[in-house]
Design a protein around this nucleic acid. Structure first.
Ligand SMILES: [Mn+2]
Ligand SMILES: [Mn+2]
Ligand SMILES: [Mn+2]
Ligand SMILES: [Mn+2]
Lengths: 218, 218
DNA sequence: ATATATTTTTAGGATATCCTAAAAACGTTC
DNA sequence: GAACGTTTTTAGGATATCCTAAAAATATAT
């Protein structure tokens, strides 16, 4: 396994390759490499049985592939917690360094780090940290676009993208914030939230889809 | 710069390449790669002006090369402090992980880590941590083989080699220990130390050379 | 259904890193 | 200083990763 292959598997996973077939095109855009390089890497991962491949259609992770993706995500997210909590990184700064550290982290290192951080369950964006064995803890979040009007909900996880995180900072939307939905415009139109104090925030459909929430259960 | 090149420069440095010409043979042994690969890497580093090269003689670091070696050592040693102090690694466990982490450490990461660790001056083996600008703090240590009989001295630094560290553990020799020299056999023979409590320890000349000390000044 | 546009694959190269085996240079020993 | 042993370099390959350009397959639109 090389950093390259690991990043490729992670990209497939993040595009939904654990449950559906991902086109080369999507990987080309996501990884910013040539189409030829994607075809080539596909062949390599196929030989190692980490993906299945339907020619001219795309690739899907095998169970081994999914396990590797989860283990890599575990490393990535534990590092993010460390950078955020111990080294004082900002929300939107942690990703880049974690993306490098994840590939040079021995099992010993990750488990010691996990202990040192008191076994965190979520990364700084609310992403759940996979278990040591490569399984995923249960979560009950859903996209903000699926919220019903009236019921109060909490922000549980947001997309780990630097620009998007900056946008949320502008809008003053934070993990754990509590809102109710007051308006949804049709045809994937803007969504308006209201804080308990009555402040209103309007965001687009695409942005809302990058925010995962859960209903408040009291 | 790649991890490979960085390790090569570090190897040259550790063999004394900051002040003398290092033969290919030494690098072959140290890095466990073929002689052909050393010749090849020499050519690459020469082109980047990180080393000077005397054909059939060997290589020496330029000032740029030395600066890179020091900055890498800084990263390596700061990571070692972290692994040792915060993650509970043993003395002889820190090196392997630090050797990987050093190549994926942004300046931001290292400086934040340095702050988090309260700006340590030495790594867990007593190695001095180079300054941010690539310069070396002054130290006044010398090999145990050069100690005079009678004068008390302290263990300041030991060779960062797993087997050697295990040997020191067996002999119960630790950083900061205070001894006096009671016997030195001629022809690079064994050296005998005595603790303040009168316990005697005898070690060979080669091992003694891997231990740096300084006289106690009270 | 055919033309057009898009996507994927193949073909042919480039670079970094590694290797083994042979040739050349150097050092040592009598 | 010739012979032998050691070290370095050169020659020729291998693999991983990347690329561009052309060819093949698939999807879309009329
Ligand atoms: Mn991230
Ligand atoms: Mn990565
Ligand atoms: Mn070390
Ligand atoms: Mn290293």
């Amino acid at each position: 396994m090389t950093p390259n292959k690991e990043n490729f598997i992670k990209a497939i996973y993040e595009l939904g390759g654990d449950h559906s077939v991902i086109s080369n095109k999507k990987l080309v855009n996501n990884l910013s490499i040539s189409a030829a390089s994607v075809t080539e890497m596909n062949a390599r991962l196929l030989k190692e049985k980490l993906i299945s491949h339907v020619p001219y259609r795309g690739v899907k992770l095998t169970s081994s592939g999914i396990r590797i993706a989860h283990q890599l995500k575990r490393k990535h997210r534990i590092w993010e917690v460390f950078l955020f909590e111990k080294l004082g990184y900002d929300w939107n700064e942690v990703h880049a360094d974690a993306d490098l550290l994840e590939h040079v982290s021995s099992d010993l290192l990750i488990e010691r780090l996990n202990d040192f951080l008191d076994e965190p369950k979520f990364d700084p964006h609310g992403g759940v940290i996979p278990n040591k064995d490569g399984s995923l803890p249960e979560t009950s979040t859903f996209p903000l676009t699926d919220v019903g009007t009236g019921k109060p909900f909490k922000i549980k996880e947001v997309d780990d993208d630097k620009e998007f995180l900056n946008y949320l900072l502008e809008k003053d939307i934070q993990l754990g914030d509590r809102y109710t939905l007051t308006d949804v415009e049709p045809f994937d139109g803007p969504i308006t939230l209201e804080t308990p104090e009555g402040r209103q925030i309007t965001i687009g459909h695409k942005a809302a889809f990058k925010i995962l929430v859960d209903y408040v259960t009291e």
